[in-house]
């Protein structure tokens, strides 16, 4: 095992974590502001990826694909909020789980009906294909590096939006006392639609970015959704900062675990057994991390008690 390989895996983990952050940030915002648990968030991720693959395939432009992903996911989010989610604010979590589970069925089968069961492919744009040599002689794919930079930029933008802008102030006010800001004359239902569309756009954007690395297929959002839940549980519900720390932690733990555990077990076992035990254990690692955080901080790292 060389140190270069390790650094490459750290970068992969960072990239994975940042994409998880885009998912988790939307989920945690939606929960924090509206008190809704949205299982269909993974479907919005999928909508973004399909929109990007469809438009990029038709026009040949990756940038147009990204724009389409943002627009399609935000639009799908706004429609879902207005038609379904709005009726769930006063309901208990069980109803929310079921209604959003029903939305997953509709989104997944609807996409299968439109695009078929075969995966689509979204090509990495020509300007970002190939590898770059980082200081220290590490060859790293340019596209993944670009994703890291974009992810960091979006994260910074989101922090700025929440902390510094008028909309951010309203969102935070909505989190702490929704009746009061309604009384102060803020159109609360428009704010909710906006937050939901924003969360959806973030999910769709990350779906499109990841879609160029993996294949674009029905159900692609669900594994990411569950990881985003783990991120939120670790970070604390409603906290954007928690989502960021949690996402990076989960991204690094998962990627490095898959890389290091088989190597570590290799010291005490024969190679084939080490690979199977190591990879099986690595698949459980983030859940063990989540359990450990729960033991010491049941409301997550940055959660309010």
């Amino acid at each position: 095992m060389s140190i270069l390989l390790l650094i490459e895996q750290v970068l992969n983990g960072l990239q994975f974590g940042l994409m998880l952050f885009l998912m988790a940030a939307g989920l945690t915002l939606i929960f924090g502001v509206m008190g809704i648990i949205n299982l269909a968030h993974g479907s919005l991720y999928m909508v973004g990826a399909f929109a990007a693959a469809g438009v990029a395939g038709a026009t040949g432009s990756f940038a147009l694909g990204l724009v389409a992903a943002l627009a399609a996911a935000a639009m799908a989010g706004a429609i879902v909020e207005i038609t379904v989610i709005r009726r769930l604010y006063t309901r208990d979590h069980l109803d929310q789980v079921l209604a959003t589970f029903a939305l997953i069925l509709i989104f997944s089968e609807g996409t299968r009906w439109l695009f078929g069961s075969f995966p689509l492919f979204l090509d990495v744009p020509a300007a970002l294909s190939g590898a770059v040599t980082l200081p220290g002689g590490i060859e790293y794919p340019l596209y993944r590096l670009a994703i890291i930079v974009i992810g960091l930029a979006v994260a910074a933008g989101l922090f700025w939006l929440i902390a510094r802008t008028r909309i951010g102030i309203r969102i935070r006010a909505g989190e702490s006392d929704r009746e009061m800001i309604a009384a102060l004359g803020v159109d609360i239902s428009r704010l909710y639609t906006l937050v939901f569309a924003l969360g959806a756009a973030l999910a769709g954007f990350s779906g499109a970015l990841v879609g160029a690395i993996q294949s674009v297929q029905v159900g692609m959002g669900e594994p990411v959704l569950i990881l985003a839940f783990v991120v939120i549980v670790i970070g604390g519900i409603g906290s954007i900062r928690g989502a960021f720390v949690g996402a990076i932690l989960v991204g690094l733990t998962d990627t490095l675990g898959r890389f290091l555990l088989p190597v570590l077990f290799g010291f005490v076992m024969d190679p084939s057994a080490a690979t199977s035990v190591g990879s099986a254990l690595a698949s459980m690692l983030i859940y063990i991390l989540m359990a450990a955080v729960l033991l010491f901080r049941p409301t997550g790292l940055y959660g309010r008690a």
Partner: peptide, 22 residues
Amino acid sequence: GVYFIMITLAFGQMFYYFTISW
């Protein structure tokens, strides 16, 4: 509440991924 839902879901998935990779 919602933590419980997410955590039970996550532990359930842990078994899923474990069986796949075992």
